[in-house]
Amino acid sequence: MKQRLWFIFIVLVLTISTVILTVSVVSAQGPTPTADDVNAIAKQLYCPVCENTPLDVCETQACAQWRELIRQQLADGWTEEQIKQYFVDNYGARVLSEPPRTGLNWLVYLVPPVIILAGAVILFRALRAWNKPAAVETEAGPGSASEADESDEYIARLEEELRTRD
């Protein structure tokens, strides 16, 4: 009889402690992350082994495991930044959808605007150079003074363009 009581006591203690432990762990986790939560982060990461495939739509087994890893990390309370950093640390900068703004990578951000600006300057100067000799001409040129002329002038221009086309 005594033995049986002891046994029940031990079972009770074990059960209660398990329940307490489980509850405490679950409450630390917060709500379970949904697939959408995982995708929100996976979308910003690129598959470390395939070419140019975002992690949220990658079909490989490896990517499925990485998404599971993100889910786990979210469940453990990691922030988005921490998760991204984890992937960068483990698989290199190529997992990010853009090169990090460091060192040589600045070139990817700076070269296009510099070239486009240079193009704009060249274009502007060329336009100004072409424009100069015509300044007098424009003033002397046929001005369309009144609203009534507009339609006629338009027809004339249209006809002229049609005529000179071929």
């Binding site: 140019n52 900068a93 997992v95 990010l96 959808s97």
Partner: peptide, 15 residues
Amino acid sequence: SELFTGQKVTVGPPF
């Protein structure tokens, strides 16, 4: 990037 630093990077849609 790979040629000069050995580091692979991705230039993706956001860029």
